[in-house]
Design a protein around this nucleic acid. Sequence first.
DNA 1: GCCGTTTTCGGCCCGACTGTTTTCAGTCG
Length: 577
Amino acid sequence: MNNVDIAHAFEEMADLLELHGENAFRVRAYRQGAKAIADLALPVAEILRDPNQDLTSFPGIGSTLAEKSRTLVETGSLPQLEKLRTETPPVLMQMTRIPGLGVKKAVVLQKELSIQSLEDLRLACQEQRVRVLKGFAAKTEQLILDGLAIAESASQRIRLDQADRLVQRLREHLEVVEEIERLEFAGSYRRGKETVGDIDILVVSENHTTVMDRLGCFPGLQSVIVRGETKMSIRVDDQFQVDLRIVPGQSFGAALQYFTGSKDHNVAVRSRARKMGFTINEYGAAKLDKPDTYVAGRTEEELYALLGLQWIAPEFREGRHELQWAEMPNSAPQVIDVNDIVCDLHMHTTQSDGNHSLEQMAAAAQQRGLKHIAITDHSKRVSMARGLDEARLLAQWAEIDRFNAQQPGEFRVLKGVECDVLEAGPLDIADEVLAQADWVIASVHYGQKQSREQITERIVGALRNPHVDIIAHPTGRLIGSRPPYEVDLAAVFEAAVEYKKALELNSSPMRLDLSEVNLMAACAAGIPIAINTDAHSIDGLDAMHYGVLQARRAGIEKGQVINTWPLSRLLSWLQHA
DNA sequence: GCCGTTTTCGGCCCGACTGTTTTCAGTCG
């Protein structure tokens, strides 16, 4: 069992204990334990084996969870979990996914009406058998019926780039309201998560009615979920939820901090405040003995400063190490910043499936402040994209040589290729040609349904080839539309370390591959990371910030990112093979 | 179940809104 499996088991324990009405703090302990395990840089099995290491030294893992981890590693299952599974009707978990239906109500409904499936629940509502139960009435019955439809039709989360577009629409729609003094978007969108479950809008305004009325006529509005004094929630587009909160100006920082989250970060912040004699809510911070007098909250900086902390960038707020970093900023890691990026090492031109020429891509890269780029068109196996064979590749590289010779300044284009790893294992381009490239990316595009062993061996085999420098989008996932292919990433990491190769963090918001957790593991293993846009057009180069955001969320240090290296360092690193 | 700058027991972040009641529990973020 790997760390992800163990984390899943604890997560499921938490869900099931919650359904059984177990102590909420015990439930939370399992959730935090799951998160702690998922964040570990080393495999749990290895930590348990090592007499010099102690699993309970990691925050959130005590003696009980450490022992259960051992059981999971050694036996592959957990008796308590198996028992809970058999005691819990599967429909309960499904029911709690209906908006407005929580654990308590779901349990009552399931028991009283012997619900076995969501279809049973729908029938019970239609036959008005719900409204006669104590604590239920006609409105709840309707809420469940509506919720069933939403649960079935809702596209749960949207990608960050889709969220960007929705935020833009909302901003433009709301900005015309003159009474709005401040407008900010918070939540997981502000934290830059790869997918976003809802949009949180924070507004400072005296005139709540005008603001809410304006949101109520947003084009794309489907329904208003709630509307109170300070809070309004709506559904837009494909049932996607948007929350609005209106706060007074002196509370803006506290509210922004609170609604940006994450939940874990807020719990950590508020616990710290409590220990220091303060209490924090979305209106500000106050002394515990004078809870009505706010002493901070106009800005986020003020709030963090009160707790002896430097301001924390939203993308770090996941309840990991960010409070320690903010406490002693000098000892915090030098996390990658978008301004550190000097190159982009994966992009396409009209030679394969790109929209712009070498000259156009180079000019656009220079405009974006890049010092060097690699042109990496597809190899011939990707026939759909007019992939290049050996002859066309050599011709393209000759053209790149001529281009570089004409460059007045320092800007350089590296001769590269995105070479397919064929289904049977070998590379799509002959070794003697690859040997003439500056930069060789190996990618899996075909045969993604192969077995774990086959795909892993293809990738490890590519890493073994002395001409290959990096594996692109190492798991092949497309967020929300295609799961990662079966690959033993631990084996890939091991091979990357052994052959001194790099791995890609593909910046396309549809890929963001490696994912945050995998990125942390790759970096813990010391593998250099290249953050690349995989641009197929000039606009595609702008995706760089998505990749950097993802790397920041994973806490990747500047020095480990190839794109921060000067060309000389990159070239000397490439000599390794 | 975890954890310790009043601690190895007794806490554990905090508030808005709704529905069902008649003062509050449940849900959500």
